[in-house]
Write a protein that binds this DNA or RNA. Structure first.
Lengths: 206, 206
DNA sequence: GTTATATTTAATAGCGCTATTAATTTTCGA
DNA sequence: TCGAAAATTAATAGCGCTATTAAATATAAC
């Protein structure tokens, strides 16, 4: 029986690669290991994806979209700026809770391999820019109205990303610096969403 | 002339290693490359430090201390809790500004090699715990007095680390998501210190 | 059933890395 | 100045990795 019983081998490779890349990053993951997880020959990984880089890129692009997706949706309901922002922050946090390794993947790859930034920008640059300019416009309108203090949209984005992503990025560090148990850490994660929302909304006040 | 003109070779290796480890992390830095930077034979790196791991550890430990150092000093002056906290946050931010690659190093190594957590904890565990418990005690006293809202000291630490470290961790990401120039990024970094202080002090209010 | 095509495997070239060893050169005190 | 100790080098064993190639096997169309 040569053919893989579990159906689509290409898909299995993709899934194993995703798990391993998220776990250890690009450099520490080998096509040999991916093949071992799937239970196939190592050459198959290259048969389907040619190079390790191509395999990684196809995964990475979708992950970047996932990370941004919380900010992409345009809310139809007529809600206040703060309420809309609150929902986006919560949605973003939820996505990260479900994919806690995501922030590390970005940091790791975009820091160690700045070349990839160009690739990413080509593919998602327009989307991310439109997200940014929409936020910028909304923010300026609110500032104009005097509802929130004057601030740079980059600062707001930074605060959101910092608070939301960092918990997942630094949880290994936290465990070292504070001698905290895994259960306590889970508790922190659980209640941290509202904490973040609170801090972010507080930071807007005039 | 066999002897290195620039004096202490061991020190030069240490410095080159530090630069490279900070730049690319443990895995992507080779002893071969370190030797090339120093201009010596690759075996010398192993002559002085035996293994790449030992070389890394000796650097890593000092970096962890550096990261924490802002919170170590006990301020003699009689200042309010908020003022003391403000100064610590600023000192911490200053250290990171001077060592912007530090946060990435921690995240990278403690995430990809959790084994190292044990080593770090053995060496700095007591120090970090005493820092934590001092903060905890001070915080509880202030909460008792009603000066700040009830909160977990872990939350406060998380907020500080998140806001301070993240800017330096994610600056490559920011450049992608927002199409920001290097000059603009420098501006953001420059004014971000007070922004962080503001957000942190705001987050304490009852 | 035969055959073209898709999938899978074994084998391997070629690279860079870590760590060790033995030999060589330099240093420096007696 | 001699010789032990320290510093440095060349050489290399041995490993795992990426990517390719050619051969083997399975699939499906006819």
């Amino acid at each position: 029986m040569k053919r893989n019983k579990d159906g689509n081998t290409e898909q299995q490779i993709l899934e194993a690669a995703e798990t391993l890349f998220l776990e250890k990053g690009f450099a520490l993951t080998s096509t040999t290991e991916i093949a071992k997880v799937v239970g196939c020959n190592q050459a198959l990984v290259h048969y389907y994806f040619r190079t390790k880089d191509q395999l990684f890129d196809s995964i990475f692009e979708r992950k970047v979209y996932l990370f941004m997706s919380a900010f992409l949706e345009i809310d139809s309901e007529k809600l206040s700026f703060e309420e809309r922002l609150k929902r986006k922050v919560e949605a973003h946090y939820d996505i990260l809770s479900a994919n806690p390794k995501l922030p590390f993947l970005f940091v790791n790859e975009l820091t160690t391999n700045p070349e990839r930034i160009k690739t990413v920008r080509e593919k998602i640059g327009n989307t991310s820019q439109s997200v940014f300019f929409r936020l910028k416009a909304e923010l300026e309108e609110e500032i104009q109205k005097g509802n929130i203090r004057p601030m740079n949209p980059i600062d707001l984005l930074l605060t959101i990303i910092a608070l939301n992503a960092t918990l997942f990025i630094v949880s290994p560090m936290i465990k070292v610096i504070v001698n905290i148990s895994d259960e306590d850490l889970q508790q922190v994660i659980a209640h941290r969403k509202q904490e973040n929302v609170k801090i972010i909304l507080n930071s807007l006040k005039p």
